[in-house]
Amino acid sequence: MREIEASAVTEAITDLFIQANYELTDDVISALKLARQQEESPAGREALDKILENASIAGEERVPLCQDCGTALVFIELGQDAHITGGDLYQAVNEGVRRAYVEGYLRKSMVEKPFSERTNTQDNTPAVIHTTVVPGNRLRIIALPKGAGSENMTRLGMLTPASGRQGVIDFVVKAVEEAGANPCPPGIIGVGIGGTAERTLLLAKQALLRKVGEPSLDSETSNLEKDILDKVNRLGIGPMGYGGRITALAVHIETSPAHIGSMPVAVSLQCHSARHREITL
């Protein structure tokens, strides 16, 4: 049994959310630069120039990339032979979020009583935490600050098995087309296929955690990723919806076995400010 201090979790979470909100990772920058090269529309090119300039200013001047510093999404993979000491794991995570958002000058966007008073919690807690238990004695933490603009465009479809591959393509392309300019394109299209309703939504979101454009390890799935990206980039929506060739930087698909009577499909859209950071303790 390996011991991991709760305070180390708090510190890691604080650093991850601050870093994610101020600096894009190299894979995102490269994907945006490639999009800039490929884009044919002048308005789309100008939007991509501004997006890249924004990333340099955020890093240099220590201003967050986007004022929507997101819901604090935290993915935890806890090794079954690791033991958290000196405190409660989820309290440690929330303390880390509190410190990041208060000390890091990040916007606090969480409200209590969502359908009535909508009172701001003042520290961006509670985090939304997804935990899986895995073999080993390590603790992997991924921080994903996710803005509302893209999150609000999430779609779940309880497709029938008869819909098949084409049904998936049509559903995802329709979701992207209906979202239009709202989720701040060009971003990443996360897709979950299979499982149950809630499983497929989680898969779609987990798909966003890959490096931009890293294909699925399964060739059948990676071919579907390519076909959907091609279709999406024929829509003409373009950067910021101003018209253009690059509506998405990548399509990432995660799959899971499904019931004989079901084929759930979920689409989770990530804006161009694809911010996530991870650490393994």
């Binding site: 220590r62 201003v63 986007c66 004022q67 000058y105 990040l106 916007r107 509302a148």
Partner: peptide
């Protein structure tokens, strides 16, 4: 728009448009 807090010495934090 809903800005992020102004860091010390700045007029405002990040200040882009919302949906």
């Amino acid at each position: 728009m809903g800005p992020s807090p102004a860091p010390p010495g700045k007029i405002i934090g990040a200040a882009g448009p919302t949906t």
